[in-house]
Design a binder for these strands. Sequence first.
DNA 1: TTCCCTGCAAAGTTTTTGCACTCAT
DNA 2: ATGAGTGCAAAAACTTTGCAGGGAA
Lengths: 150, 150
Amino acid sequence: MADEQEIYQVICDRLRNNSYKLTPQRQTILRTFMDNAARHLSAEDVYSLVKHEYPDMGLATVYRTLDLLAELGILQKNDFGDGCSRYEFSRKNEHHHHHLICLNCGEVSEFDDDLLESLEAVIFKRNHFKVVDHDLKFLGYCQKCQSTLE
Amino acid sequence: MADEQEIYQVICDRLRNNSYKLTPQRQTILRTFMDNAARHLSAEDVYSLVKHEYPDMGLATVYRTLDLLAELGILQKNDFGDGCSRYEFSRKNEHHHHHLICLNCGEVSEFDDDLLESLEAVIFKRNHFKVVDHDLKFLGYCQKCQSTLE
DNA sequence: TTCCCTGCAAAGTTTTTGCACTCAT
DNA sequence: ATGAGTGCAAAAACTTTGCAGGGAA
């Protein structure tokens, strides 16, 4: 990923260009994602992480901010089937990555592959369905849990 | 798909073999899925469909039955991102199918492809992650909505 | 100053649970 | 007859909304 400061600038610009305000709450939440780039945070996760730095922030604000940032394409919203939405910085323009979800401990890791791009043309021909995005998850057991379980 | 009566027998056997009872509620729900094999029904969908034939059935029973049938591998639980789980007859042993979800009207159609099987070996080598299942969704616009939108 | 944004509390949605009663086996 | 299964209502879990007050531009 590029330099943190640079990313932060790009995001602030995108907010301003859409006439959204750069409130301290939004800044704090953004910083939380930058500080936890490896994780896939839920609203509740963000809420507790932010509580230290910003004890007065409301949970509703977290939800509204995540919504907004996802709408602006800054964050990507994921559903890993654990009952809540989880967010990460959007990487639509980079290499396509998919998620490996451990059925035992719930850890989410990643896997890069472009294989599916070629499929989208096939789908358009066969099904007349115009694909704009795809979502591929692999469910199984991470290395740690494989040894734990047996 | 095979003969309806045959499927029904297989399912009843699987219930009995696990010492679950074949209650009229469960029969009604199963029949509902057989009568709507092309659809991906939510608990609420099943509930309203069943209401005609069985007005006294409770929603909790529908949830519990869908859970049970999914656990037994009779139904497959899907998350299409519309805020509720949707079920269809499980086809784990047949050709792998993936879902095409229309972002406009929400219609879910299907697409068959085995491409991903080969990927799972690559993932085990590269990430030491033991894949047991995968879930691939394509998001886009169905033929109908493509013309409607432009 | 303007009105976007926020915190709070209340409500919404989907799903689960507790409990006493009922029925398939 | 017996415990799995059921309906009902209440609760749980996550998220959204309404509103009055507050702060970024």
